[in-house]
Every structure is written in structure tokens, then in C-alpha cells.
Design a binder for these strands. Structure first.
Lengths: 240, 240
DNA sequence: CGGAAACTTGAAACCTTTCAAGAGTCGTGG
DNA sequence: CCACGACTCTTGAAAGGTTTCAAGTTTCCG
């Protein structure tokens, strides 16, 4: 039985019994390793919708793991235009945008009530020495972040319909991997934000969702999406 | 005196006297560290235009550093469409697309005669133990790769003219940082490849370069570009 | 319950692509 | 060294996809 994506779901406090442990940092680490990490990660913190996990220009504080809720990664250009570069689900890690020069190049904002844990920067070095496999895990996660952006670059070069289809498929896949229903979920993004993420006008997003609904591919009720024909969506999208 | 980007320039063999050492892996490492890396990196290898440094699906062999020549990073979708995700200059590192699961998710192709060095995967662990700062350098470079893709995502959401302007500015900046002339260079990409990289038709690239020339911003002679008004270009581009 | 925000829908405008043709360049071989 | 052919680049015109503008509807939150 899968749970519906819902921030009110109570999640556990330590890495041991965290439902995200398979996806979060401690993948492929043994019990003893997880003990050490669990001590350092500490209690989760909670934010409200619109709060920042970090802001562009902030010093790197550590790698963060979302336990519940969703977040968006955004950056701005000189003219003040906002660009969303990622949409993050529970179990996903963020903070890698500060890897290059110890300062965040993007901001991370909670899209709803959100809780997260933190692997503090100042303890990363020591922790990596004590837990050799952790290093590999961190590189693996940095690699995942990179792969997600590569995929974003590819999708951005496809026509509008494919971008929206790809967005839904990507979301469905990631929800499934994290134990949420892959066919029935509630978007925490507005049409405006989806459009910004995909490089489309919000009206285009609305129209394409409608056309998918007319085609029997999905059922749309404002932010609630139910996928009725996942294969049909996949066939629309060259990338998946 | 800066040198013109030219693959025939003879470059040195070891990290010690490599003109790229400031940009390549050994930044912020001491002489002794560089000694160790230099031994392992070994002699550079040479490829011809069209040769692959690695292919999508290949096992991760190591981090590569371009000593001379340029390369493109490409990936393909199911329909066989090619997407270029990066354009790399001498002194730049590649291979991070295999970080997530030890297999390359993209291919890297030489755009002209190219030479490179290799930091072999199987020695990375040991080397990182011996040279603690190397790890930080590798993370820093992974972060740079990520930042470059983020910038690509942002640029892809701007109108065609800004994308081309941004492409030229980005190239100019990177050439300058590497000791090449930032105002006079030869593209190793065709209009088709630039278009693919920027998500534009090749004709659009051609037309926009022409319009920049008409506006006195640049001088175009096929692949040879001379920037006459860098500030003017920058003003066209919200991102820079 | 009221007002602001979010979403939908239609029509016109606009930017970019596609199609097409011609000119220039580069590398190879005679 | 020149000629040929393949490839690349340029340029124009029409077609097409997406955005913008505008108005109306629904939802959400205080």
C-alpha cells in the first residue's frame, strides 16, 4: 500500500527508522555507519511554505535531506527574472550548488510545510574519514543532481507538449521510487511555476494539461493529477 | 601576451610545467601533492576529430582533463536525436556524468585534434587518501560542472538572441581565464552544433550572428569570431 | 464570507522554424 | 596547384508553435 504525498504524514527522527533511509544518504552503508551519521544529522527542522532552506550567496552549511514536503531550487538573473532549476521531493538531497566555491549559487524554497535533516559542512570531512563509503554516496548524489540537470537541458529542447509529458513522467517515476503513489498526486507547484520550470507560459501549461485530459491520458483537478495512461504519456515523450 | 586557441600549440607533459595547472586538477595543492598526481596522471593521450573520449554506457575510467583541443558532451534520446549539453575547452575537466552510477550517461567527442590526461578511477580512492586536498578539488570541479549546467538551463529559457549572446560571452570569459584571447577565437562547432547546444535552428544562429555583425558587436568570418563590443553583448544578455 | 490568487479559455501577435535555393569553404585526389 | 564534391553557411519567404493580452471562473485563505 503506497501513501499519498502528504506533508502531514509523521516521519521518524533518526536515520535508523527513517522511511527514506533507502533513498537518502545512508544507502549502501552498514548499521554502524548509519549510527555515526544519525548522531550528527540530528533532529529534523521544520519550515513553512515560502521559507528558504538557503539563499543564493549563503555560505555552504551542509547537505540537506528533505524528509517531508517539497522544495524548489531557483536562481535569478540581473534583471530579476526567476528561474526554477529543480523540484525536489521527500528523500531527495540538496545543497550541491555550493560545491564549487562554498557559496550557494541558487536559493532553495519550501513549497509547503517541509522538514529536513542536515549533514553539517564542518563535520563532513571528519565523517568521511570515519565512514569511507559515505564519500562515495555523496559523490553519487552529486552525480544524481548533475544527471537531473542534464535531463532538464534535454527536455528544454523538446516541444511544449513533450516537456509537460516529460515533467509528469519524471515526477511519477520519482514518486514511485519513494513509495508514493505514482499515478495520483498533488502538485505543490502553481501553473506559473511549472511554466517557469519548463520554459513555458503558464497558459501553455494549462492548455496542454487540458489536452492530455481530453485525450484520456490524465485527469486534472487543479493541482490534483491522476495519471490514467502512463504509457500513452511516455509515447509522447522522446526522452523517456 | 595571450595565445590564440590552436591545437597545434605544443603543451607540456607533466602537471608541474603544464600551462593548465592553475585550472586543472592541481589548483590549491602543494608541490608534493602535485608530484604524486603527476606520476599517476601520466602521459597525455591524443585523439582525432570525431573520436570519442568516452561513450554513453561506458564504465567510468576516470576524470579526464583536456590539455589541447575542444570537445562536446552529447546525449541521445530514444528517437536518436542528439543533444549537446556542454562544450569544453583546454584546461576543463570531464567525466563527472558517470558519478551517479559508474556508467557514463553522455558521450564525449573531440571536435578537433585533442590531447588529454587521465586520473584513473581505480587510483582515485588511494590518491584522495594520500592527498586530502584533492578530494576538495574534485568536489569543486564537480560543482563547476553542475554550475555550468545550471547556467545552461537558465540560458535555454531566454530568447534566441540572448542565447547566442550568452554563448559568446561565456566562451569569451572561459577563454580569457585560460590564457587565450577572449576577443578573437575560432569556433570548433558548426552552426548546426551551436544550434543544437542552444536549442535553436542552425539558420537562426546564422541570422543572429549576422545581426550582431550588422550591429557592430562582432565580426564573423565563418568559424572565426572577433568580438568588437563585449559590453554591448553583455547588455543583450540578462544572465551576464 | 470576501478578496486575492490561481486557473481556464479564446484570439491576435510574435518569434522561431521549416523549406528552399544559392554561395562559399575545405579537403582530397588528380 | 587546381578541380571536384561534400559539407557548411547564408538568405528569403511561408508556416507553425508559443506567447501575450484579455476576460471570466474557480479555489483558497484569512
Amino acid at each position: 500500500m503506497t501513501q499519498t504525498l502528504d506533508v502531514r504524514t509523521k516521519l521518524q527522527v533518526t536515520c535508523h527508522n527513517c522511511s527514506l533511509s533507502e533513498l537518502c544518504i545512508p544507502r549502501g552503508l552498514n548499521q554502524c555507519d548509519i549510527d555515526r551519521i544519525s548522531q550528527i544529522v540530528g533532529r529534523k527542522k521544520t519550515l513553512q511554505k515560502g521559507d528558504y532552506l538557503y539563499r543564493k550567496g549563503d555560505r555552504f552549511r551542509g547537505i540537506l535531506a528533505i524528509k517531508a514536503g517539497t522544495a524548489k531550487i531557483v536562481t535569478m538573473d540581473q534583471s530579476g527574472n526567476e528561474y526554477m532549476t529543480a523540484y525536489l521531493l521527500p528523500g531527495e538531497l540538496l545543497g550541491f550548488d555550493a560545491l564549487a566555491d562554498d557559496r550557494h549559487t541558487c536559493s532553495a524554497m519550501a513549497l509547503e510545510t517541509l522538514s529536513y535533516c542536515e549533514l553539517p559542512a564542518e563535520q563532513l570531512d571528519a565523517l568521511c574519514r570515519d565512514v569511507p563509503n559515505l564519500l562515495r554516496e555523496l559523490f553519487r548524489h552529486a552525480g544524481n543532481t548533475l544527471a537531473a540537470e542534464t535531463s532538464q537541458i534535454v527536455l528544454a529542447k523538446r516541444p511544449a507538449e513533450e516537456r509537460v509529458a516529460g515533467f509528469l513522467i519524471n515526477l511519477s517515476d520519482r514518486l514511485a521510487r519513494r513509495g508514493f503513489s505514482p499515478l495520483d498526486f498533488r502538485l505543490s507547484l502553481t501553473r506559473q511555476e511549472i511554466g517557469n520550470f519548463l520554459g513555458l507560459a503558464l497558459e501553455t501549461v494549462s492548455r496542454i494539461l487540458k489536452s492530455f485530459e481530453d485525450g484520456g491520458l490524465i485527469e486534472v483537478n487543479y493541482k490534483q493529477i491522476r495519471i490514467q495512461n502512463l504509457d500513452g504519456l511516455r509515447r509522447l515523450c522522446a526522452e523517456y
